[in-house]
Design a binder for these strands. Structure first.
Lengths: 206, 206
DNA sequence: AATTGGATTGACTGGTCAGTCAATGAATTG
DNA sequence: CAATTCATTGACTGACCAGTCAATCCAATT
């Protein structure tokens, strides 16, 4: 079999995807040309169309690749025998670490897909909804176990929780929030402390 | 003076802006043509350019018009003598009601500007940041008064809070969350209960 | 009723870019 | 060492659309 060639081909595809991440992160999906991706990848224009049917498909691929990883992680966390609060912490932690290690990928996913629910989000609404469903499930189970407030709708809580995370990432992406090593680590706790512990600290509590 | 004419002119400008809201909400800013706006407004193509320098300026105008109102409202709420938690409730309430009364406007602002921090958001980062600053101030004061947990960074809390709101609106905009009258009203409480009260309801608390 | 100046019209232009395609290159096979 | 297959190239095209502009309209003014 043409193993060596197959390998080389797979590498090129990867090269193009990686270049696309950088270009999308730098210029945004809409205001970059396909030729920018090709140039960044050091590859001829036409080759992008050899591996992908369209510019959109490049972004779709990048998104799904990543989103599926995240959904799997959430599923795994959900399967563990942990208090609901710790499950949520693990999720925040995973997402923040993803940003730490690959900020460009996260930027593209959030800015160009997740938050662009108009264009691409629409296509991926089902995938996005899946993640919300899983988180809602965690909240719901936390309520049944008695560790979470049963008066809050689990689905709304899931939106609140994920929205909080996404907004903090957005704050980092656009340099509105400090993002030193320490800030990233603390942010995990701030988010969980806010969502789970709550901001209130009036007399009655601990 | 040419009062009647001035008035007519102002009306036309308004007509165009209102039409633009509908078109942007329906098709999205990027995938609509200027002619779509003109058609929707029942006006000739060129007239759009009589009142606005560019397609971008139409969106900028819509955004600023609305965002400034919101910032003013937040400022007013902040000026009142209320517990921090109630200030936050008033803010959620105002935003949810804005969505209730003018969903298209909110959709455009959130989807096309606020969450599109790449393109338009960039232009309006300062305006957006202002709102975060005000909310952070409310949290900060709540901490100094002892009603809020002092261990959470006010700015991060502001992002968490606003992110939660925006995500819930996004959920409504894309039909991922139920949006009956009752749901809108409850959502205000869910958000505040989550952010201020916290999800935790383990033994120790009330 | 002539004049003025802003409102209004819509055909047209110029630039941009996604996607096509025919040609070329290079590894594999028989 | 053909023949085959698929990777790779980049010039080209066709569609699209923001923004321009010369012409027309019309209320107000003189």
């Amino acid at each position: 079999m043409a193993t060596a060639r197959r390998q080389a081909a797979a590498d090129k595809r990867r090269t193009i995807l990686d270049a696309a991440v950088r270009v999308f992160a730098r210029q945004g999906f809409h205001s970059c040309r396909v030729s920018d991706i090709a140039d960044e990848a050091g590859v001829a224009y036409g080759l992008v169309y050899h591996y992908f049917d369209s510019k959109d498909e490049v972004l779709d691929t990048l998104f799904l690749e990543r989103w599926n990883i995240m959904v799997d992680v959430i599923r795994t966390i959900d399967g563990q025998d942990l208090p609901a609060r710790e499950k949520l912490y693990s999720i925040v932690s995973f997402i923040v670490d993803s940003y730490r290690h690959e900020p460009d990928v996260m930027k593209v996913i959030i800015v160009e897909v997740t938050r662009a629910a108009n264009s691409f989000g629409q296509t991926h609404l089902r995938a996005i909804d899946e993640a919300y469903g899983l988180i809602a499930g965690i909240v719901s189970r936390g309520q049944r176990e008695g560790s979470f407030n049963p008066d809050v709708s689990p689905l709304f809580a899931a939106f609140t929780f994920y929205g909080a995370i996404e907004q903090v990432l957005t704050g980092w992406i656009f340099d509105m929030l400090p993002q030193g090593e320490r800030d990233l680590e603390q942010a995990k706790h701030f988010i969980i402390e806010t969502i789970c512990g709550g901001l209130d600290r009036a007399d009655s509590s601990k």
